[in-house]
Design a protein around this nucleic acid. Structure first.
Lengths: 157, 157
DNA sequence: TATTGTTATACTCTATAACTATA
DNA sequence: TATAGTTATAGAGTATAACAATA
């Protein structure tokens, strides 16, 4: 299948293909952990922000609190995350469990291995350049970092 | 929300965030056309490969032929694509309709506008560098270009 | 036998709207 | 009134399995 020449010189298209390459590799290496990149990001956010609540987690992931609740349900059922009493009687404080913390350490290691494989063909200075240019692309936009491939807009958020 | 420092220097994470920025902007500018990036890619593939069949289209999009059929159904119902008799009595030959062709022209224009906005902060030489480095990242992997954000593997393909 | 399109079914992720309890 | 969590429901996008027609 040919691709349309109208896209060949678009940075956005190159970013999209690179994203697919990255995610394919990451998903493959994450397979032993049975965790999607989006759930991994949720774990990382909880580790970096222990005690955060579901609504805030959802905002960081660009999903609404209803979807965030389902996500936390799955992670809690699997014993990776626990809900503790929050800052008031309405909210939960999310924390990694011991098992979740240990599992996350191994997942992050797999993520690093994946990243190393992806950039194996680039020199250290090329990596730094790529990182810098991508960060400038991001700062063009207005959105917060996120991990899943979520739909368009922020309906409720 | 803080992000986990373990990810800060990963190229894959930067690619992911850039992808979100790009897609958010593109989806916004494509809103008047009521078309997702994945469907746009399908139209582009059909334009670049007129007469292709559903199975091949699906492979190019990394979705199976059942999903490809649904996608074509939607595009056909909207009058953008038509199924003509194929190379044998089993297969269809996919073509853009006149309306589809005209709509696609406008969608591509919107896509270019989006891309220009995304890379507005980069100089011409920086764009070229970014494009080159991203292409090298892609060639590290083994996958074909694709447009949707499809799940992990190639089950049937 | 293999391939193409199709149908039926189900899963994942997400959204919206309404409810509850708390604030 | 506003907020946090929850529940019920729905939609998009995908997959698998089985079938018919054709090759």
């Amino acid at each position: 299948m040919k691709i349309d020449p109208a896209l060949a010189d678009l940075v956005g298209y190159a970013v999209q293909r690179a994203h697919l390459t990255v995610m394919d590799d990451l998903r493959r290496r994450l397979r032993p952990f049975d965790i999607s990149p989006a759930k991994l990001t949720a774990l990382l956010l909880i580790r970096a922000n222990p005690g955060t609540d579901q609504t805030r987690l959802g905002k960081a992931l660009s999903i609404n609190r209803s979807s965030a609740m389902k996500l936390v349900n799955v992670l809690a059922e699997r014993g990776l995350v626990e809900r503790r009493p929050g800052r008031d009687l309405r909210s939960n404080a999310l924390h990694l469990t011991e098992a979740g913390s240990e599992a996350l350490t191994r997942m992050v290691e797999a993520t690093r291995v994946s990243d190393d494989a992806i950039v194996a063909r680039l020199s250290a200075s090329e990596r730094a350049t790529l990182l810098r240019l991508l960060q400038r692309v991001c700062s063009t936009g207005s959105r917060a970092p996120r991990a899943s491939d979520a739909p368009p807009e922020d309906a409720e958020n």
